[in-house]
Amino acid sequence: KDKDLLKGLDQEQANEVIAVLQMHNIEANKIDSGKLGYSITVAEPDFTAAVYWIK
């Protein structure tokens, strides 16, 4: 199951987060929520590491 990592990002921010996570071998998903911006989700086992790397 995926957990929400970040919400309300613009496309550039979302792409930067995806890139950082991929560099650390964390699979992440970018979801277009329309006017609400983009959300990033990661698998539950990767959540703690993902939070660490996006600081």
Rank of each mutant, 00 (worst) to 15 (best):
Y52H: 08
K35Q: 10
H24N: 05
K7G: 10
P45Y: 14
I31R: 07
A28S: 06
K35N: 11
D32W: 14
G37H: 05
I18W: 07
S39D: 08
N29R: 14
A49K: 10
V51T: 08
M23W: 07
G37N: 03
V42R: 00
Q11M: 13
G8N: 08
K35P: 14
N25C: 12
I54A: 05
V51F: 09
K35H: 12
A28E: 00
Q13I: 06
Q11S: 12
W53P: 01
Q11G: 09
P45H: 15
Q13C: 14
V20F: 15
Y38C: 06
I26F: 01
S39P: 00
S33C: 15
N25G: 15
E27S: 14
D32G: 11
Q13W: 07
L5V: 09
N25Y: 06
V17I: 14
Y38P: 00
A19I: 08
F47D: 00
M23D: 05
K7A: 10
I40W: 02
I26K: 01
D10W: 04
L9N: 01
A28T: 03
G8I: 03
L21W: 02
L36H: 12
F47Q: 02
D2E: 11
G8P: 01
D32S: 09
A50F: 04
D46G: 03
A43V: 04
S39K: 13
D4N: 12
D4V: 15
A14Y: 03
E12F: 11
E27T: 13
Q11T: 08
E44K: 06
G34M: 03
D32R: 09
G34Y: 05
I54W: 09
N15D: 13
Y38W: 15
M23C: 11
P45C: 13
I54L: 12
D10H: 06
S33T: 11
S33H: 15
V20I: 14
I40Q: 00
I54F: 05
E12R: 12
A19L: 11
Y38D: 00
N25R: 07
I40L: 04
V20Q: 07
F47K: 02
V42N: 01
A43Q: 09
L6K: 03
V17E: 00
K7M: 11
V17W: 13
A28Y: 10
Y52N: 06
K30Q: 07
Y52C: 11
A50N: 00
L9A: 02
F47P: 00
P45I: 14
A43R: 11
Y52R: 07
G34A: 04
L9Q: 01
Q11I: 13
S33G: 15
K3G: 04
Y38S: 01
K35D: 11
W53I: 11
W53Q: 00
M23A: 12
K30C: 13
Y52Q: 07
D10P: 06
N15M: 09
G34E: 04
A19Q: 08
Q11W: 13
K55D: 09
E16G: 09
I40H: 00
M23R: 12
A14L: 04
D46T: 04
A19H: 09
V51R: 08
M23V: 07
A49R: 12
E27C: 13
K1L: 10
Y38H: 03
E12A: 11
V20T: 08
G8H: 08
G8A: 05
Q13E: 10
A19F: 12
A19T: 07
G34D: 04
K55M: 14
L9T: 02
V17R: 01
Q13Y: 10
I54Y: 05
L5E: 02
S33Q: 15
W53S: 01
A28H: 05
N29M: 11
L9M: 04
K1D: 08
W53E: 00
K7H: 14
L21S: 00
K1H: 10
I26A: 00
A14W: 03
G37E: 03
A50K: 01
L6C: 14
A28I: 04
V17A: 07
I54R: 02
W53Y: 08
I31C: 06
T41E: 04
K3R: 13
E12P: 04
I54N: 00
Q22W: 12
A50M: 03
V17H: 02
E44W: 11
D32L: 11
V17T: 04
Y38N: 01
L21T: 02
D32N: 11
E12K: 12
S33P: 02
K30S: 08
L5M: 04
I54S: 04
A19V: 06
K1S: 08
M23Y: 10
E44G: 09
K1N: 10
D2R: 15
V17Q: 01
V51M: 14
V51K: 09
V20G: 03
I40D: 00
D2T: 14
F47H: 05
V51H: 07
L6D: 02
A49H: 06
I26D: 00
E16K: 13
E12T: 10
V51A: 10
G8Y: 10
K3A: 07
N15L: 09
I18H: 03
G8Q: 04
W53T: 03
K30G: 04
M23P: 01
S39G: 06
E44C: 08
A14M: 04
L21P: 00
V20L: 15
M23F: 10
I31K: 08
M23N: 07
L5F: 06
K55I: 13
I18V: 07
Q13N: 04
D2K: 11
E12Y: 10
D4H: 14
N29A: 09
T41V: 10
G37W: 07
V51S: 09
A50W: 04
D46P: 01
I18D: 01
K55R: 10
A14N: 01
D10R: 10
A14I: 04
K1I: 11
E16D: 09
A43G: 06
A19N: 08
S33E: 15
S39M: 11
D2F: 15
Q11D: 12
V42H: 01
S33Y: 15
V51I: 12
K55V: 12
V51P: 00
I18G: 00
D46A: 05
L5D: 02
